[in-house]
Design a protein around this nucleic acid. Structure first.
Lengths: 243, 243
DNA sequence: GCACGCAAAATTGTTAACAATATTATTGTC
DNA sequence: GACAATAATATTGTTAACAATTTTGCGTGC
């Protein structure tokens, strides 16, 4: 499916290191759910697919495992992560803890230029929604939060939040409700209003509400979705078929 | 100096995976400044020292680089990180942003058992100070913050803060003032009082003050210490010696 | 004496082969 | 026909050798 092709065109000047390219490709596949949670990742298959050595794939695995996007099991291999309900709750709780602080800082250091930057981004979000581009909308929604993190001017926070947002994307892809009631763009509008207000407490409260809302829109009651769990799909216990 | 020896005694049951052992040993060496900032880490030397293959060392490097404790330069190798003054400031700023939230959460979820856990830890900190064990004091001081993170019950926060505290330890080791006025144990006492008070705002304010105090005790005015920067050590510009 | 360039050494990056482990298929037994 | 033991296969873990790159040392010319 997602072979490496010849490529070299869409990545600009072609100076990009192949290792980052592979990481990015796998990332995209995970967030697109072309690679489903629980799926086994065989080193040699991937190596052949990308036309690199196993060692390179192994290094990429380490990176993905560090971001909690795959699980590395000794002697067994790599598997797409299957964030549990509890993990999902903890991730959004952690984000609230951090992004409250982000909102506070951004609210108290607002400038006209920064406000324009945010408005600019929101316009793109609205456009994606208008065009019905669900995938772009999800990505832009994440990048909105990343933009706020960047406005704090703190690279440490920015980098950590970037990873946490990626992890959130996997969680959302895994637990989102069948009919995506994705009204988060209007929540982002409200967030901008709060940030422009300049009151750190109000901004933090609005951020908390927003992140809780995202979490609450998820279908976090199912015991464990994903993978090829036919038993849950067909609502019966497995039995052997007649040969 | 820090050879692997035969070892096997101090790591308990001996079931510990060697990869984690190597990471831990290198970590200790970095925080002890047996490995100085800027120092080159040659793969083969380390491989022979620890009696493992270069591949294993390479994997360990990736982990350390992810924690920002070493720098990985393509085709050049690995170097002990030299956090800049700006990085130091950002790390403590990030910690304040996060640990304010931690303090808030701990203050509002305090129980007698948890209070005892904290008091228990403080007793160990005091003991280390009393014994003049500087190294133990620094480690325990970091673990105090980690304990609070653990009390939030959020593994995401705990793991991130663990890395940030390690990074802080490197920064402190690099920038601490010659005469270590390490009065942070009394600040931890005050922090406990604030947490017991139950007021989240008070607890957060006390945490902010404490982290700012640590930062302010650092000698963050020097342009760039570490390495073999003879020019700054001898206060003169380099010149060639007569052969 | 100093700068430049070239060659040698050291070091990292990569590949391929081998060993250890886990998974799957097969066979035999009840 | 179901279950257990065993062999065959597939996959991961590890090692060693080779290629590419950088660093170092040396010599030459100015």
């Amino acid at each position: 499916m997602a072979k490496a092709e010849d490529s070299g065109a869409y990545k600009g000047s072609g100076k990009l290191r192949p290792e980052e390219m592979i990481y990015q490709e796998m990332l995209d596949a995970i967030l697109d759910r072309r690679l489903e949670p629980g799926m086994k990742l065989v080193e040699e298959d991937l190596a052949k697919t990308f036309g690199v050595s196993r060692a390179r794939i192994r290094a990429t695995f380490l990176q993905l495992a560090h971001d909690k996007l795959i699980n590395l099991v000794p002697n067994r291999g790599a598997f797409i992560a299957e964030p549990t309900i509890n993990e999902a709750i903890e991730v959004f709780s952690a984000r609230r803890m951090i992004e409250d602080g982000v909102a506070r800082k951004v609210a108290t250091s607002m400038t006209p230029e920064r406000a324009d930057q945010i408005r600019n981004h929101l316009a793109r979000e609205h456009a994606a929604h208008h065009d019905g581009d669900h995938r772009a909308a999800i990505i832009l929604s994440g990048e909105f939060h990343l933009l706020l993190a960047r406005l704090t001017g703190n690279l440490v926070i920015e980098e950590f939040l970037e990873r946490l947002i990626l992890r959130s994307s996997l969680i959302i892809a895994m637990y989102e409700s069948p009919q995506p009631v994705d009204c988060s763009h209007s929540e982002h509008d409200r967030l901008l209003d709060a940030l422009l207000g300049g009151d750190p407490d109000v901004a933090a409260a609005e951020m908390s509400r927003h992140l809780d809302a995202i979490r609450d829109r998820l279908q976090l009651q199912r015991p464990k979705p994903g993978k090829t769990d036919f038993a849950s799909i067909f609502g019966r216990t497995p039995r052997s078929e007649a040969s």
